[in-house]
């Protein structure tokens, strides 16, 4: 398969600089450890916030770290789409007899991000062990769906900002508000925020679908009906569909305007 070829090439390239890569991977994970330490100290001072305690927040951090770095690793081409346009590599993709999305996926795979992902999984496990959850089959399924939902929402955001970057001449920093903003709010169960903010991150960008709602389902608390919390991750996965449609429309515009 072509994708395994891409994967092999990226692996080969990265291995040329393995010492440097390992160092970067570890220091990147260090940033997150710093953040976890900060949140931990915050909860030392304040025992709970909005009814949630440290471990519940830790699970949320574990989830967002895992899904964000997984998506960053494999969908880096969308994340750095303006670079693809500037370097002319995107034009090159248009003259290859392979689907555009396939090529964008193949254009960049950043293995250093996997260190953060590993950290996210470790944090998730630590949190889950300490949360005293009454496990059953449904909860396991919802947990798995939560991670898949997280990846698809973040992927949708990457695709969306890649699409927007076709319209803006300069790659403006505030495009990151959507992606990084969604990331940072997801460090905590988002129902602790003001209502309008929580609503925005539920109905516009469905961060809640892999954050507060499945957390409610796992702990059996909260005001939202349990069945709704359980299916929320499935709804969240749909977010990427309009994003991809938007990107494909932007592509048409790219072909008629160029850069």
């Amino acid at each position: 398969m072509l994708y395994t070829k891409y994967l092999k090439m990226h692996m080969h390239s990265s291995f040329q600089y393995r010492a440097n890569m390992a160092f970067i991977a570890i220091t990147q994970a260090l940033v997150n450890i710093g953040e976890v330490l900060g949140v931990w100290m915050l909860f030392l001072q304040f025992d709970s916030v909005g009814g949630w305690t440290f471990y519940q927040s830790l699970l949320m951090m574990g989830v967002i770290y895992t899904v964000f770095s997984f998506t960053e690793c494999f969908a880096r081409g969308y994340d750095e789409f303006p670079k693809l346009i500037k370097s002319g590599e995107f034009d090159r993709m248009l003259i290859r007899p392979v689907g555009i999305h396939y090529q964008i996926f193949g254009s960049k795979i950043e293995f250093t991000k996997l260190a953060r992902m590993l950290l996210g999984i470790v944090l998730s496990v630590i949190a889950l062990v300490n949360m005293n959850i009454d496990w059953n089959v449904w909860k396991v399924l919802v947990l798995i769906a939560t991670y898949i939902c997280g990846c698809s929402v973040i992927f949708g955001l990457f695709v969306l900002s890649a699409g927007i970057s076709i319209y803006t001449v300069e790659n403006l920093e505030f495009l990151n508000i959507f992606t990084n903003g969604s990331k940072e709010v997801a460090y905590y169960p988002i129902n602790i925020y003001a209502k309008w903010l929580a609503r925005f991150f539920t109905f516009v960008i469905p961060v809640a679908c892999f954050n507060y709602l499945p957390l409610s389902f796992l702990t059996g608390t909260g005001s939202v009906p349990m069945w709704l919390c359980g299916v929320a991750p499935l709804f969240g996965m749909l977010f990427m569909i309009p994003c991809i449609i938007f990107f494909n429309l932007s592509l048409k515009r790219y072909k008629s305007t160029g850069t």
């Binding site: 304040f46 709970s48 916030v49 909005g50 905590y188 602790i192 925020y193 003001a194 903010l197």
Partner: peptide, 10 residues
């Protein structure tokens, strides 16, 4: 808005 949530409770 985040820290408000913390300072509201305690």
């Amino acid at each position: 808005y985040l820290y408000m949530a913390f300072l509201n409770t305690e």
